[in-house]
Design a protein around this nucleic acid. Structure first.
Lengths: 339, 339
DNA sequence: TTGAAAGCGCTACCAA
DNA sequence: TTGGTAGCGCTTTCAA
């Protein structure tokens, strides 16, 4: 039925060991034997049984990736970049989605650990570090992506969220906004960092955030923040004095905000300037093209993959590396009040 | 180091076989022994070695998915839906991206076959059916998604592309458009079907497509059609008489078209109405909200997964199933010339 | 209800 | 340069 080394060995009158060595380019094989084996392998369309190999070597040549939501373009982009790097090194990517659910994430993590992936990459939806201890117990190298945890010395690749908050807020100030609101995300490091950058920048410009000017939203289900942004913006619009600028913790939220602002008959950016974060695909094709913070997701993916590869290569545990990528401001119409 | 059945068996003074039976809920075990084994497994945080199991059973409990582009929201949505269904059945998803490159797709296919996935799901970028014969040789059940091949009797789940073309074109006619152009995609079944629906609908309304009114574009690299649509639209705009409606084979292309139209100082939909296809995320937040055809990608993913599951369960080969999902028209501002 | 023996397909190790 | 032996961790089969 399926072709095994044994079959090739028998056909050629050599031993299984010889065939195995040819397959792995082991040096100690005569050129002639090598050719014969290779030829027969091709003829029979031989494929090594990776399960058998993994059983002995302990390497599965698979990498686990857990993201909160594949539909979010940021994670899709990271996944794409990762998979490109790993493919070239002979690793396959096992994909899991946690749907932003910490419990589901734990289950998926459990599956991947049982599968004995060679490394794990996680953009985590957890609130605690308990899961990560479990990974460490299993001695599997892992890299956190995008979201980090205080008090957890782990490998990390992501954007400098504080800097993102600073960039966005400073830009709004520079554009003449004086009452700048912030729509912040759930209690994960990204939202916390962005909010902190916002807060500090306002302080430094002696423009303390007004009461009610920071609204928390969470993304629910399939909408990644759009509805939350819409609702939050309605609250902001009703305030007196009304904010004249809004920094949103992600782009979908900003899109929701823009929808609410336009529906209220206000102008963007004249009445309210809007800045998002993420530079999501299509942001330049929106009703009002969106000023946003680019996170360089491709670079995040590539560097996370490279880091994971180096961790797997390392014979001894390496002390955790944290790679922080600098965000950049992408100015478009939604905030451009000064030509 | 890592815990094996042997360790548990030794600790409890039972045989490895007994432990194995408990793990798989094999009936012939006394309640008491069962409890003891389960308890010890938990204490030691035992995880079965799936490679060893796969070696014997021949099942890897992995499913391979190949998509042309993870960043395209359609495929992201399909991947998400698939992974949800498979997760519940204990299967993991190995993700490969072909980047729309037939050669790369073949390599990835080869990897997945070598990994002995239990089933394959492919949205293929191939031009020929050769690869699929190879899958059939290996007796691995596979399901084509979105794109099909003439002359290949394979399992398929996708949208009725001809119907999509009909819906879009009929809608434009109904909105009073008289010179309807079509920007079509590369030579894959989706683009062919949509173009055919377009052509036939025009014929049936005695409105033959004018020369030059069908422009072919391919998506290059990271843009999924936006640039192609932009360039094609510039050509259309320069024509005399100018088209007053455009049906685009996908949404990114339509976005490119809208950009070109607006840049030329023309109005959408008054001067040129635009209809896309795909109902990509955010299409309702665009500068002009985009009328488009919804493909129900979630349903495509779910049905493809269910089909794959049933194929794996089947003891004997089943004759290929083709599931065609009816598209729906989503009317937004970009085509609404008659209130 | 339990377990001894065999073996899945491959690689590691060492001897020839 | 080649190959015999042992065994990876598990399941299957069949006997006790």
């Amino acid at each position: 039925m399926t072709v095994r080394m044994k079959d090739i060995a028998r056909d050629l009158g050599v031993s299984v060991v010889t065939v195995s060595k040819v397959l792995r380019n082991h040096g100690d094989i005569s050129k002639e034997t090598r050719q014969r084996v290779l030829k027969r392998m091709k003829e029979l369309n031989y494929r090594p049984n990776l399960a058998a190999r993994a059983l002995i070597t302990g390497k599965s040549y698979t990498i686990g990736l857990i993201v909160p939501d594949l539909l979010h373009p940021f994670f899709a982009q990271v996944a794409k970049a990762l998979s490109g790097v790993f493919r070239k090194q002979g690793y396959s990517l096992i994909l899991s989605s946690s749907e932003e659910d910490p419990e589901l994430e734990k289950e998926e993590l459990d599956v991947l650990l049982t599968r004995r992936v060679d490394a794990l990459l996680i953009a985590s939806a957890q609130w605690t570090v308990e899961s990560f201890r479990q990974i460490e117990d299993q001695q599997i190298p892992y890299v956190l992506i995008d979201r980090r945890f205080v008090g957890l010395a782990a490998n990390f690749v992501g954007v400098d969220d504080d800097a993102a908050g600073v960039l966005a807020t400073a830009h709004l100030i520079e554009q003449g906004c004086r009452r700048i609101a912030h729509i912040r995300g759930p209690e994960v490091s990204t939202a916390i960092g962005r909010a902190e950058g916002y807060r500090r920048t306002l302080s430094e410009h002696a423009m303390p955030s007004l009461s009610g000017h920071v609204i928390s939203v969470g993304a629910f289900g399939d909408e990644r923040g759009e509805v939350g942004g819409y609702e939050a913006a309605k609250t902001l619009i009703a305030m007196d004095p009304r904010p004249d600028g809004v920094f949103c913790y992600n782009d979908p939220t900003a899109m929701g905000v823009m929808r609410a602002v336009l529906e209220a008959g206000l102008r963007i950016p004249e009445d309210i300037a809007v800045v998002g974060c993420g530079n999501v695909i299509y942001s330049d094709l929106l009703r009002v093209p969106l000023t946003t913070i680019d996170q360089n997701s491709q670079s995040i993916g590539e560097q996370a993959a490279e880091l994971a590869l180096s961790l797997m290569d390392a014979k001894v545990p390496i002390r955790p590396v944290s790679i922080c990528i600098e965000p950049t401001l992408v100015v478009r119409a939604s905030s451009l009040r000064r030509a």
